[in-house]
């Protein structure tokens, strides 16, 4: 009988303060590690919530007065001056579109949803012509930016932009920044799976996450983690929902539509992106899903400090070159 020294907490009396609430139409979870000062932690979380709410008001498409909707309302009519913050976000989005050959595109909001109503039972795919017609308004090249008056102009009538593919990551990054400014050394902002973590857990260990098991949940089991990653000082975003898909002609299609073809994408179950920045991780997850394993990994492998884990429809695991399996 031998005994070894276990890994035991290194820090004194750190506790985790966590708040779960609904923001931007999603479940947000904000966690702060402090040395037993609950009131201080709650005030820092309040500041984070206020910041996320501010970003939400800026970007939402549910409020006619939001900057996003003011841009959309004048599509095909004329440029709309916006705040430097929204202008910069649109500018970064367009550069991400170029980086991903249009697989990421904020003009995705212009899709005609009549055909792809995933809530109803789909039995057949549309013909390619019809499908392309539905996505004709999606083209990031038709967004004109004018730095002179910080304006955004959607050149085609009916075009719409939306920040669904980048907004949660941006909000998480903003919330983290506010809390770091206020002295939170260890915490996590989890925006419905798009999360950013810094510092360490109360027990001194790095933050870790599991990647969901791709096999469907059975009657008595929930979806579980099948692998683990250390994510301290990293952001993680996952695209792919194991429950949301349709099967047509024996092939499984996700609820994500390729903005180039108008077809829902097939082949991959999930894409997880790791990057030092939550906005970047969020914005890259869906395009890799759209581009497929080969092209997607080729892209990620060229990006500094960005990692990627892909699970395909046959439950095979693919990773970028910088992922070490242990």
């Amino acid at each position: 009988m031998t005994s070894t020294l276990p890994v035991s907490p290194l820090t004194d009396a750190l506790t985790l303060h966590r708040r779960v609430l609904r923001l931007m139409g999603n479940r947000f979870e904000i966690s702060v590690v402090t040395a037993n000062d609950g009131a201080w932690a709650e005030a820092r979380i309040d500041a984070a919530v206020a910041e996320i709410s501010r970003v939400e008001r800026l970007l939402t498409t549910f409020d006619e007065a939001s900057e996003t909707n003011r841009i959309n309302a004048r599509a095909g009519i004329g440029p709309v001056p916006v705040s430097p913050e929204v202008y910069a976000l649109v500018e970064r989005s367009l550069r991400l579109s170029a980086l991903t050959q249009g697989a990421f595109d904020i003009t995705y909001g212009g899709i005609d949803k009549r055909l792809w109503n995933f809530d109803k039972q789909l039995t057949a795919l549309p013909d390619p012509q019809t499908a392309r017609q539905l996505v004709r308004l999606i083209n990031y090249r038709n967004v004109r930016l004018d730095p002179a008056d910080s304006s955004v102009f959607l050149t085609e009538t009916g075009m719409r932009i939306g920040f669904g593919g980048i907004g949660k990551g941006y909000a998480a990054e903003r919330a983290k920044a506010i809390m770091q400014q206020q002295g939170v050394a260890n915490g996590v902002v989890n925006a419905a799976g798009d999360l950013t973590a810094w510092g360490h857990q109360p027990n001194g260990q790095p933050w870790t996450i599991g990647i969901a098991d791709p096999t469907p949940a059975t009657s008595h089991t929930a979806t579980q983690a099948f692998s683990h990653l250390c994510i301290s000082n990293l952001a993680v975003a996952t695209s792919g929902n194991y429950e949301k898909f349709v099967v047509i002609g024996g092939k499984r299609y996700a609820h994500t539509i390729d903005p180039r073809t108008g077809y829902p994408i097939s082949g991959l179950k999930s894409v997880t992106i790791l990057a030092p920045n939550a906005e970047l991780a969020d914005a890259l997850a869906t395009p890799v899903m759209v581009m497929g394993t080969r092209v997607g990994l080729h892209l990620i492998n060229q990006l500094p400090h960005v990692g990627c884990v892909i699970v395909d429809e046959h439950d095979r695991l693919f990773t970028s070159k910088n992922m070490k399996l242990t």
């Binding site: 990054e173 920044a177 506010i178 400014q181 692998s227 920045n277 990773t319």
Partner: peptide
């Protein structure tokens, strides 16, 4: 270009690779 706040850790602090631990369920 990025208004992402003060996340100013030096680049050397960022991981060049990530460790993935596998178990099977």
């Amino acid at each position: 270009a990025v208004t992402g706040g003060i996340g100013t850790e030096k680049l050397t602090n960022y991981a060049n690779s990530f460790d993935l631990v596998l178990s099977k369920i």
